[in-house]
Design a binder for these strands. Structure first.
Length: 269
DNA sequence: CAAGAATCCTGTCAGC
DNA sequence: TGCTGACAGGATTCTT
């Protein structure tokens, strides 16, 4: 969002093209028309959604899914053409592409004054970096939940914006087993978990995110938080907390609700 | 109702 | 080199 904001805020969309509508959700038929000629007033992020506000009273809601990226480059460079499903051009010579090979991402239109009532935003939990995301708030959301804490943290209704990598990393930092039932978290564990989530995200944002394969910033640069991963993607490697302790088997990989979980069975309980 | 599985789609990589 | 299967940052919808 910040990469888009840098180049697009205040600019006028000179040209917009929507090439294929069959994304995760069908693109709204009026998307290109709504963009063309509009001035981009500003940006906002909610959970994993980017909201681009137009001066027409409409907002463009963007979700990148798993493989989506926004490309921002000078007109004429055209780095990517394959899987570029939406393209726009500004009045000052910049080109923006919405690139998404898997098409798990999508874009929608919503009136700006009704943004939070959009079906995809309406039920979301608190922003993890807001003061509103606190130990008592998390405790209330986890009360009575029998699902593993790993699945609960991926549930956007409980806290909004955490994905698989950052859940694994935050649970490691908090010393909590991903298998532990959610209702057993409130108390001392929750008081470690909430700060662990905030610290993980804050550090990752400062590092420009985690570049695994196709995730890059809007200027094409890689994030570098992947070098700071302590457990994610590190199956079989020594646990950075236990180091040479021979009672630690190192980082283990399991599958929970169809997603990989990485953790240390010694440090995380 | 809650929890877990299946699903959408394409690309990449390991193993044979 | 080419084939096959597993796996990938997500989130909804379908089953149990």
């Amino acid at each position: 969002m910040r990469g888009l904001q840098l180049r697009l805020e205040g600019r006028i969309v000179k040209r917009a093209v929507a090439r294929r509508p069959d994304m995760r959700w069908p693109l709204p038929p009026g998307l290109a028309a709504a963009l063309t000629g509009a001035r981009i007033a500003g940006f906002r992020r909610r959970a994993k959604y980017i909201l681009m506000r137009l001066d027409s009273g409409w907002s463009v809601l963007i979700h990148l899914g798993m493989s989506g990226r926004m490309l921002v480059e000078p007109v004429g460079r055209n780095d990517i053409t394959l899987h570029e499903h939406i393209e726009l051009e500004t009045d000052d010579g910049w080109r923006v592409g919405f690139v998404d090979p898997r098409r798990f991402g999508s874009v929608d239109l919503i009136e700006t004054d009704r943004e939070d009532q959009h079906k995809l935003l309406a039920g979301l939990g608190p922003e993890p970096l807001d003061d509103a995301f606190s130990t008592p708030v998390l405790d209330a959301a986890l009360a009575g939940k029998k699902t593993p804490i790993k699945a609960a943290l991926l549930d956007q209704k409980i806290v909004a914006g955490l994905g698989n990598i950052y859940v694994c990393e935050a649970l490691f930092r908090a010393g909590i087993s991903p298998l532990r039932q959610a209702h057993t978290i409130p108390g001392a564990r929750s008081r470690r978990l909430v700060p662990a989530i905030k610290e993980t995200l804050t550090e990752a944002i400062a590092a420009g995110g985690s570049s695994l394969r196709d995730y890059v910033q809007t200027n094409g640069e890689l994030g570098y938080f992947q070098h700071a991963w302590k457990v994610y993607g590190r199956e079989g490697l020594p646990c950075p907390a236990c180091q040479s302790d021979e009672t630690c088997d190192g980082v283990r990989r399991i599958v929970q609700s169809g997603r990989s979980t990485f953790y240390c069975t010694r440090k995380q309980r």
